[in-house]
Simulated assay, not measured.
Amino acid sequence: MTRVLIVDDEPQIVRALEINLRARGYEVDAASDGRTALDLAARRHPDVILLDLGLPEMGGTEVIEGLRGWLTVPIIVLSARHGSDDKVRALDLGADDYVTKPFGMDELLARLRAAVRRAVPAEEAAVVTTAAFTVDLAAKKVSRDGTDVRLTPTEWQVLEVLVRNAGRLVGRRRLLREVWGPAYEHETNYLRVYLAQLRRKLERDPSRPEHLITEPGMGYRFEG
Rank of each mutant, 00 (worst) to 15 (best):
L212V: 14
P46H: 04
R111G: 02
T130H: 09
G171A: 13
V77A: 05
A41P: 08
I64R: 01
P102Q: 04
D148M: 00
E203L: 10
A95Q: 14
Q12L: 14
E223Q: 06
L71T: 12
E215P: 13
F133K: 11
R204C: 15
D39G: 05
E65K: 05
I76R: 01
L195N: 02
L198V: 06
G171Q: 06
A41V: 03
A31E: 08
V63S: 06
D85E: 15
D9W: 06
L91I: 09
L112N: 02
E65S: 14
E124Y: 03
W70H: 12
A37N: 07
V158K: 01
A131I: 11
V135K: 05
S84T: 12
P121Y: 10
P209V: 03
G69S: 15
L55A: 05
E223I: 01
L202Q: 09
I76L: 13
R172Q: 13
P46M: 07
D148Y: 13
R22H: 14
S79Y: 08
R144F: 05
P206R: 00
D86W: 09
L91M: 14
L40T: 03
S207N: 13
I213P: 00
R168A: 15
V158Y: 05
R164T: 11
R144S: 05
A166M: 04
T134H: 13
G34E: 04
V120W: 02
V135N: 01
T72W: 08
F222Y: 14
D39P: 09
Y98I: 05
I49F: 00
A132C: 09
L112E: 07
T72V: 13
K87A: 11
H45F: 02
E27L: 08
T72A: 09
A131H: 07
E155F: 04
R199L: 14
A115T: 07
G54L: 03
N189P: 10
T61R: 04
T134E: 05
G104F: 02
A41C: 02
A23M: 15
T214F: 00
N165P: 03
G69P: 01
G83Y: 01
L17A: 11
L176M: 14
Y194L: 10
R113G: 01
P209C: 07
V77L: 04
N20M: 11
G219W: 12
V73E: 12
D29P: 03
G94C: 01
R68C: 09
A23L: 15
V7K: 05
R221E: 07
R22G: 12
D8I: 05
G224Q: 04
V163W: 13
R111Y: 03
G54V: 07
L38F: 03
T147M: 13
D205Y: 10
N20F: 08
V99G: 13
R150Q: 12
E65N: 06
V135L: 09
H211W: 11
G69L: 14
T100Q: 12
V88T: 13
Q197D: 11
A30V: 09
G54R: 04
L93W: 07
D106H: 08
I64Q: 06
P74D: 00
P74C: 15
T61S: 14
A166V: 10
A119W: 00
G34T: 15
L108F: 01
L53A: 01
L162S: 09
E124M: 08
